[in-house]
Simulated scan of single mutants.
Amino acid sequence: MTAWLLDPEAIHLNHGSFGATPASVLEAQQAIRSRIEANPTRFFLEGEYQASLDEVRRVVARFVGADEAGLVFVTNATAGVNAVLRSLEPSLSPDDEILVTDHEYNACANAAVVSASRAGAVVTTAPVPFPLEDCGEVVDAVLGAVTDRTRVLLIDAVTSATGLVMPIAELAAQLEPDVRVLVDAAHAPGMIDFDVTQLGVSYVTANCHKWMCSAKGAAFLWVRPDRRDGMHHSVISHGYNGGWPSGGGHLHAQFDWTGTHDPSSWLTVPDALAAVEAMHPEGWSGVKTTIRELCLEGRRKLIEALEIEAPAPDDMIGAIASVPLPAADNSGSAIFDPLMAALRDHHGIEVPVFTWPAPPERVLRISAHLYNRPEDYDLLAKALVGELRAG
C-alpha cells in the first residue's frame, strides 16, 4: 500500500464514498500550491491559472470522451447537479415534473426538490426494485413513471447505495430531447467504460476524486452543445456579463472563475490519471477490469456467507456492489447502521452499512480498488456473519 497513504491497520473497503489519493498526487498538489503562493497575482491574473486549467480540461475531455468547449470544473458532482437544476428553473412551469428514482443520491434528490419548489414544479419518483433480475426492470420502472409533464430525469450512472450500473443510454434514447436527462455520474469515470457523448444525454457531472483518484474537491460538468445557452454556475460571478474570464466561450466564462479558491485539486487530475495508469501493466483498461473482477469476487463471498441470491446480475456491477442484510430497525433516523461502527471497531474494517431504502431495511456496500486484495473480503464475510449472529 506504499503508493497510498491509507492506514495499514485498517481494511479499506469504502473507496466509493470518498476515494483515495495516491501519495504522489498529493505531493503534486503541494507543489501546485507552492507555485500559486509564490506569486498569487502572477498565477491568477497573468495567464498561468487559465493555461493550466485549459490543459487539465484537455486531459479530462480525452479521458471521458467529451469536447473541451462543453467541459467545466466544479468541486463535486452535487455541485454540478445543482448548477444544472438552477439553470433549468426558469424553463419549468407550475406542475412540471422532475423525475428521479428511489436510488437517487440523497443530496442530489434534495437539490431537485428545492429547484422544483422555486418553479412550482414537483419531484416524482420512479421506484426501481432491488434486488432485480436485469436492467430491463430499470428501464420499465423509469419509463413507466414518465408523464407528459416530465421535463427532466435526474439519474445516477452508478447508484450510490445499491451500486447498480444504470442503463443510461437506453433511457436517453427513449426520452431525449423531450425530456432532458441529467446524469449524476459521480462513480463512473475510472470505474467503468464511460464516454459522455455516447450516452445521448443533455448533462453529465462526475467526480474526479473517486475512481480517477485526484485530490479531493475535483469534479467536472459536461453540457451538450444544444443545452449550453442559459447554463450558469450556481455561484454567479464575473463571467455572467462577459467579465473575466471571457476567452473560452459562454460555458467556460460561467465556471472557470467564481472567485478566489484553491484550484490545486482540479490541477492534480492529470497526475492522478497518470499515477493510477502506471499501477497496472495494461493501463486504465487493466485497472477497470481488475477492480471489477475483485468487486465481483468480494460480492460472491458475501452472498455465500449470507446464504442469499445475487441481488443484481454481474453485468450491472462495476467496482462497488451492495448486498441486502437482515432487517434491523435501529432508530429510523440514522443513515448509517450501527453495524458499520461494529465492523470498524471490532475488526478494523471500513465498509458502509446503509439504512436503505427505509428502516428496517439495510444494505452493506463494498468497493474495490488496486489497494484491495481478495482476502479483505474473506475477513469481511467472516466478521459480518459473526456480528449478525451476535447482534
Score class of each variant (00 low, 15 high):
Ala3Asp: 11
Leu5Phe: 11
Asn14Glu: 15
Gly16Ile: 00
Phe18Arg: 13
Ala23Arg: 13
Ala38Lys: 10
Thr41Gln: 14
Phe43Ser: 12
Phe44Cys: 12
Ser52Pro: 06
Val56Trp: 04
Val56Phe: 02
Val59Thr: 15
Phe63Lys: 14
Val74Ile: 03
Thr75Gly: 11
Thr75Ser: 14
Ala83Gly: 13
Leu88Trp: 08
Glu89Pro: 02
Pro90Val: 02
Ser93Ile: 02
Asp95Glu: 13
Ile98Ala: 00
Cys108Arg: 03
Asn110Asp: 04
Asn110Cys: 00
Val114Asn: 05
Thr124Asn: 10
Thr124Val: 10
Gly136Ile: 06
Val139Phe: 04
Arg149Glu: 14
Arg149Gln: 10
Arg151His: 05
Ile155Met: 12
Thr159Lys: 08
Thr162Ala: 03
Ala173Arg: 13
Gln174Ser: 13
Leu175Asn: 10
Glu176His: 04
His187Phe: 14
His187Leu: 09
Ala188Lys: 11
Gln198Tyr: 11
Tyr203Val: 08
Ala206Ile: 08
Lys210Asn: 04
Lys210Ile: 05
Ser214Gly: 08
Ala218Arg: 10
Val223Cys: 00
Pro225Met: 09
Asp226Glu: 12
Asp226Val: 07
Arg227Phe: 02
Asp229Arg: 11
His232Ser: 06
Ser237Trp: 00
Pro245Asn: 00
Trp257Gln: 03
Gly259Lys: 08
Thr260Cys: 01
Thr260Ile: 12
Ser264Arg: 12
Glu277Val: 02
Met279Pro: 12
Thr289Met: 00
Leu294Arg: 12
Ile303Gln: 08
Glu309Arg: 13
Ser322Thr: 13
Ala327Phe: 07
Met340Val: 09
Arg344Thr: 09
Gly348Glu: 12
Glu350Pro: 08
Val353Met: 08
Pro359Cys: 09
His369Ala: 02
Arg373Gly: 03
Val385His: 03
